[in-house]
Design a protein around this nucleic acid. Structure first.
Lengths: 195, 195, 195, 195
DNA sequence: CATGAATGAGTGTTCATTCAT
DNA sequence: GATGAATGAACACTCATTCAT
């Protein structure tokens, strides 16, 4: 028997796959339960609503990405190398766990209504990840590798490029393997951040 | 009395506002008709389905952006200046007609199922715009202003950054007026494209 | 310019074709108007409602059939010969003006709600035809050609067989030309009516 | 708790009553569910669409009739006696379960579009019944009781007369109890089939 | 008379959520 | 906990009818 938390994660993983491919509103609880082989009602023993499942999913996804980036940030290498590492890891995710990345772009960024409760606008759910990006950039600035620019600009550069590539990839725009672009992408980001 | 085409556009504009703020699936035809002050049925005299309204909307939006960019491309100025012009126009759109831009990012990019018919995956709907970006970049390369890089990289840079900023803005992340960022954004893009 | 009555008939004829093939509820006023090349609104200048158009149609159809039968009844021939004549005419109708016959069986007999107003149950609409059948049968009885049976039995025999054949024909059940069956059908009816 | 199949039948029975009295297009799923005392949605747990409910209903009806006729066909009596038996049973149905019979004539025969899928024109749904009629007639011919005539003629005779009587009865045309006509009707049919 | 855009009540169908077992 | 039948509000879409032009 799985622990309660383990089962929650199993549900999240099934949900992620469906949410990321078909979108939140085109995925039914029924489909998720079928995919998992459990009953509809049972899912409600773990999540009080479809919306809360979407929120738990973004926490799960953010944590995966933040964990990777946190680890990279802990390494004793230059910030540019960190960026290259992160791009590498990111593109691997896109390839091997597209649901992780696509959930971020297809559900989280596009269905804000799902993540905003009352005053909090669901930004906090991604904070863990944003903080690591901020850490990386700031360190680069303080160490003289990067130019000091508005953080939102830096953030837009990093996530914008990665997001675009994710989208193009999901549309099968790329002929070659995504790995091929590791250099291109990290260079592009570094050029933007550098002095 | 409005001409048929004019009325179609009025409907599209109402739809755009709602689709872009609430998303396609959270917007009902009933809401669109109420907002317009016409009956539900009347909308169906102009568009055979909600989906087709979404498609007409993306054509409308793409055309607006492409028209601006086409005009800029026709000017006798450097490519970097063109980029600055476009960023300016773009940020003005974000400010004055957010529905145009947000529709692109919140509906078109995230609800691909709405735009894919049979074999064609709805990419064509944005071609008009993509072509102008390509033209601008290629010209920059041939005139020695930009480095020759994979077009998808260049495209990711341009739309990724603009998309990110749009998203951050819609989340009210920016303290200052968007215009303030014209320089930052165009510099960022140009740095990425330059040699 | 057509007279008012002529135009009414033109509308009825278009309606008949559609009603008889697609059924009353699957035919829209819009389709009828398109088929005729007039506007929707114009139809309402001739008939106050779709239902009233259906009623006028049955009157038209009944009259066509009754007229034929009345003519046959006026001939100085045996009743059996009359039946043969009528079967011949009927099968020709089925072949050349299927809408006439099929309207009778597909709309009139199956959508009674359309023809019943208040106390009158729409039976009167077909009376003209029923009366001629009754006349033919009674004459046959009084002249000793037919056995005296309950009129409803005789009526069921005549219209039942013809109705069945109409249905089978509309399902393309018959391999051979309908004319081929003139003898079979009239013999069948006569056998039932005879002593 | 009813078994799934039992519940399907309960739904079919409710649907039959409404379809047969009001017609397919005048009956709403909502009415059926109300009549049953269940929710609208629940009906969709048993039938994927209103159309499929109509198809299941004709299967149900055909089977009821075919079962009776099959039993009669199994008896060791003359074919004429079989016909009398069947007429008896049929008229009892008309009296006690009019929805069974009227569904056949008011919905199945008049709304062909509901029963035709792709190439198959829904004729198969009634095959079970048609086959038994054919068996009865053929046996009568081979045993010398009936004349050898085109099967469609024989079929038209049998179902035509019964159909007509059903219709007249539903219009309250008959003064006397339907049972009174058992002899008349079976005699009429036998006269037509005999040598 | 003729037009056809506009109306809006009505229908089939979906699906998140509940709850008796 | 686990099940899945039951619920019912909600929504896309239709179409008879009206009426300003």
């Amino acid at each position: 028997m799985l622990t309660k938390q383990k089962k929650r994660n199993t549900i999240i993983q099934s949900a992620l796959k469906l949410f990321s491919t078909k979108g939140f509103y085109n995925t039914t609880i029924s489909e998720i339960s079928e995919k998992m082989g459990v009953s509809v009602g049972n899912i409600y023993n773990y999540f009080p609503s479809k919306k809360s499942l979407a929120q738990a999913s973004i926490r799960y996804v953010t944590n995966k990405l933040a964990t990777e980036l946190r680890y990279i940030n802990s390494l004793e290498i230059s910030q540019k190398e960190k960026i290259r590492h992160f791009v590498t890891v990111y593109l691997q995710f896109v390839h091997r766990n597209p649901e992780i990345i696509e959930y971020f772009f297809k559900v989280y960024l596009s269905n804000r209504e799902l993540f905003c409760d009352k005053d909090d606008c669901g930004f906090a759910l991604a904070k863990e990840f944003i903080d690591e990006v901020e850490f990386l950039v700031e360190k680069g600035v303080s160490e003289g590798e990067f130019e000091k620019i508005d953080f939102y600009m830096a953030f837009s550069l990093v996530t914008g490029i990665l997001g675009s590539i994710t989208f193009l990839n999901s549309e099968n725009a790329f002929m070659k393997d995504l790995d091929t672009y590791i250099d291109d992408v990290s260079t592009l980001i570094c050029k933007g951040l550098s002095r």
